[in-house]
């Protein structure tokens, strides 16, 4: 328990250091942030599809709202743990982090959260442009969903973070697990609601997607945020996310413990 207390006490400082680091490398960070602008391309494509009439109830305004929220969720849940872990395990620089009294993962989490202010700075003009281009996107937001949306984004961040931790820990055994993570990422991009709202996927596929974890990472928060899910659907969505969070936490704790035991500390 004292370990947890240490993390809680150190966290504000970790956040401050993380933020300072992000500000120091601001240009690089902004370029990184801008690499995940696929929702904008998909918005352009779907907008053209909806030009001659709504697609399954999705009009141009709905697509603008959906992909604007998708852009926000994608950014606010972004983290680079898998790259950090891969690099630190391979080069042995994880050794220093392991000696510190706070858990290395706490440091990674603080670093990810510290990027949020910069992400917001990049997001605001992008969203403003979409809103100016398709003002009708404002219709359909559910103000009552706001608290659930915040919670859902936090849960999605947690699942993203843990999934990346799991893949990153595989580097304890494989030295390099980014290839595997890229495969995961490709599957995620197709089935999370990133390139098409899940409601528009071919019917048979949609049933399968409901049971896959990818929805918990993007689709659910976006549907809540864009007002596509209301009432009980919001609650069941949060519940799905929570269960994926719990399973990923168990798995992440397991691979981390076993992995650190195997850790070769290259260069030590």
């Amino acid at each position: 328990m004292s370990a947890l207390r240490r993390v809680v006490r150190a966290f504000p400082s970790l956040l401050r250091v993380g933020l300072a680091e992000m500000v120091a490398y601001r240009a690089e960070v902004i370029v990184w942030i801008l690499t995940s602008t696929l929702p904008l391309v998909m918005l352009a494509v779907w907008d053209r599809v909806a030009q001659d009439g709504a697609v399954q109830g999705f009009g141009q305004g709905d697509f603008a709202r959906y992909f604007a929220v998708a852009l926000v969720v994608r950014q606010l849940t972004g983290t680079w743990v898998v790259w950090e872990l891969n690099q630190q395990i391979r080069t042995g620089s994880l050794s220093a982090a392991l000696l510190k009294p706070t858990h290395p993962l706490a440091w990674f989490a603080a670093e990810s959260l510290a990027t949020m202010p910069i992400r917001a700075v990049v997001l605001i003009p992008l969203i403003a442009v979409i809103a100016l281009w398709r003002p009708e996107m404002g219709v359909g937001f559910e103000p009552a969903n706001a608290p659930a949306f915040v919670l859902s984004v936090l849960l999605a961040f947690g699942v993203h973070f843990l999934v990346q931790t799991i893949f990153g820990c595989l580097a304890f055994w494989l030295d390099q697990s980014l290839g595997l993570f890229n495969v995961w990422f490709a599957v995620w991009a197709l089935f999370s609601g990133y390139i098409a709202p899940i409601a528009l996927m071919p019917d048979g596929l949609r049933a399968a997607v409901e049971w896959l974890p990818f929805r918990a990472l993007l689709g659910i928060p976006v549907e809540i945020g864009a007002g596509l899910a209301t009432g009980p659907a919001v609650w069941s969505g949060l519940l799905v996310q929570l269960s994926w969070l719990a399973s990923c936490a168990v798995l992440a704790a397991f691979v981390w413990r076993r992995g650190v035991l195997r850790y070769g500390a290259v260069g030590a």
Partner: peptide, 9 residues
């Protein structure tokens, strides 16, 4: 992705 879009287009 192409298939997804043309499925509904």
């Amino acid at each position: 992705p192409l298939w997804f879009v043309f499925h509904r287009a």
